[in-house]
Computed example of a mutant assay.
Amino acid sequence: MKNEKCTNDNPSPERTLIMPIAADKSEYKTRLPRVFLIAEDGVMHCIRALKSLNLSRYDHIYITILRHLDEKYALTERLILQFRINGITNAEIVVLDQPTTSQPDTIYQTILQKDIHGSIFVKDADCSFCGDDTIGNAIAIYPLEELDWVNPKNKSYVSVDDMYYITNIIEKRIVFHFFTAGGYSFESADTYCRYYEQFRQQPGLYLSHIIYSMLLDKHTFRPVLTKEYEDFELKFEKK
């Protein structure tokens, strides 16, 4: 059933960045999720994932976390301190009472809770890159061969045609030259909600599934070639 809060005939021009960090893994019972760890320079990894972007482009920035992890590890207090230290003034923390089924679900719950309309930019917390997003539908990409070391099973891959449009996106299979760099732009939060609602019962749901369905329905997505891509998970594995 469609949730009426995800419907708006006159969406506002506001731009919103959403960083979903609501995974609920068994190891989090005994250790802090690694994206909340602080590097040697004093910057939390998920904040580093934000700082490489031009945050002044967004009216709102929401980092979504789980309540029981917030209470266990004081995540709200840690994040607020990081906002202040790093001069991020337009960020807010969204706390979910229950774990979500997937990253797309976390994004959806954030949209509902904050009544978001207009364009959204979804930023993964476990990587950083330099480059601008667009107010339209787009995916941040990076060429696979530019990385010295990569875990290919953790990526999704996109095909780009000669006119510089994305024509396909596939999860966990190296079939194209570019992989997604952890940034996804949707022209309309309302459209995102409608497509999510079609797939909400599907197990193992990724953003790539929603985007692929939108591509089949003739929604166009542009690739945004990024620079200085850094995968934090690879850094953690090296330690």
Rank of each mutant, 00 (worst) to 15 (best):
M214Y: 00
D126V: 08
Q198T: 08
L75G: 02
Y206A: 02
A140Y: 12
Y28R: 03
Q82I: 07
A49S: 10
D9E: 14
E92Y: 05
N10L: 14
D115Q: 14
L207C: 15
T16S: 09
D41W: 12
D162R: 09
I21T: 15
L79H: 09
D161E: 15
N151R: 12
C127A: 14
L225A: 06
I120Y: 04
A140G: 14
A125R: 04
P203S: 14
I116G: 07
D162N: 15
D115G: 02
I63R: 09
A138G: 15
R48Y: 12
I21D: 03
K235H: 05
R78N: 08
K5Y: 10
V160Q: 01
I210T: 13
K235Y: 12
M214L: 08
I210S: 04
L79P: 05
P33W: 00
I120L: 02
S128A: 13
F221W: 08
E71Y: 07
Y196R: 00
R78M: 12
A181V: 05
R200C: 15
S102C: 05
P143T: 04
D231N: 14
F178H: 10
D148Q: 10
Y142H: 13
Y192S: 06
Y28M: 02
D59I: 00
E40K: 13
A138T: 05
D148Y: 09
Q103D: 12
I61D: 01
Y196F: 15
Q109D: 03
G87R: 07
A74D: 10
E233S: 11
R222M: 13
Y108K: 00
